[in-house]
């Protein structure tokens, strides 16, 4: 039986404009509707979370002005004062230390992995970032307690106090316990390092080979080529990586909780204990029912975390889509 050489008897010739919906069309419509509603549900989840937090936190803002909460330094829930400045400052300091340490090193490492290594070497180095990225936060916390806290107490704090601390009092503390902003920053920097490295590498790898070859053809060194690929072509991706790293550092809970000391005051030096917003929420969940407004105060802290993360992400998105005309739908 050959179908080629005779005019084929076609069993169906579907009408271009169907008069009634076929079974397949029904499937297609139902699939469209169901899948679209799931995609909307993802947006709905974020809206719902924001809504819940705003509703709960709103109660506190009715009793106290926003400025008293943000700038107040007294955190005494039993007396009804909910000044959260120590937590804001603690969170910002810890995040800043982590970003300052991790971002330059991670971007350099990403460039190295993408531009300098041979496939063989990369096979050896890639598990390094993958393993680090996969480690649970609580394991980082254990490592922090066992390694970083003693390191800060016995090595970093004394050295800093003896040298640069002479000029900058903020870096001088001869009696550091080790549980400090510095320790939390160090632990966090190792946590966000693999995230930024991996994304930087992927972004650079996606830069067209032609661009690289064109630069090499002009006699550029590898580093000069990397500057073009990383800080021109790959910039949007690297910015996105840094924002993700920031979000992770800003909101990390358990790992920070275990090494930051949890002292609710504005830390006088980097080697003193501090407290973060996420730690505040995590540590007080057990007792929050007994004190009036306490739960609302904790929800305000959660709302603050949410607001910062949303504004950072949306801000970056707007910057990248408007300014550089990339991103968004990609």
């Amino acid at each position: 039986m050959s179908l080629l050489h005779e005019s084929v008897q076609r069993s169906v010739r579907p009408a271009l404009v169907p008069r009634r919906w076929h079974w397949r069309t029904w499937q297609d419509r139902v699939g469209h509707w169901a899948m679209a509603s799931l995609a909307w549900a993802i947006i709905g989840l974020l809206v719902a979370i924001t809504g819940v937090l705003v509703l709960r936190a709103g109660g506190l803002l009715q009793v106290y002005p926003l400025s008293a909460i943000v700038f107040g330094v007294q955190w005494q829930p039993l007396r009804g004062t909910f000044g959260m400045a120590p937590f804001f400052v603690g969170t910002l300091l810890v995040t800043a230390v982590a970003m300052l340490l991790a971002v330059p090193l991670a971007i350099l490492s990403g460039i190295y992995l993408a531009e300098y290594t041979r496939p063989r070497t990369r096979l050896l180095l890639k598990p390094l970032t993958d393993l680090l990225a996969g480690m649970p936060p609580v394991v980082y916390g254990v490592w922090g307690v066992l390694v970083i806290v003693p390191l800060v107490r016995d090595v970093i704090a004394p050295i800093s106090t003896g040298t640069i601390g002479m000029l900058v009092p903020f870096l001088s503390n001869p009696r550091s316990s080790g549980y400090s902003v510095m320790a939390a920053g160090l632990v966090l920097s190792l946590m966000i390092f693999p995230i930024i490295t991996a994304i930087t590498e992927e972004v650079l790898r996606a830069v067209p080979r032609e661009l690289r070859e064109a630069a090499f053809a002009l006699g550029a060194t590898r580093w000069e080529v990397s500057q073009i690929t990383a800080f021109r072509a790959g910039l949007p991706g690297i910015i996105a990586a840094v924002v993700l790293g920031f979000s992770r550092a800003f909101g990390e809970t358990l790992a920070v909780l275990m090494v930051v000391g949890n002292i609710p005051r504005i830390p006088p030096t980097l080697f003193d204990g501090s407290y973060t917003l996420s730690g505040l929420i995590a540590n007080n969940y057990g007792e929050m029912m007994s004190v009036p407004l306490y739960e609302r105060a904790l929800m305000t802290a959660a709302l603050a975390l949410l607001a910062v993360v949303i504004s950072f992400n949306v801000g970056t998105w707007l910057f990248l889509t408007r300014r550089l005309q990339i991103g968004g739908s990609q």
Partner: peptide, 13 residues
């Protein structure tokens, strides 16, 4: 964008 925001959201939230 929503997924990226959710990805960055602290899990404690």
């Amino acid at each position: 964008l929503t997924l990226d925001v959710l990805w960055g959201m602290p899990s404690i939230v």
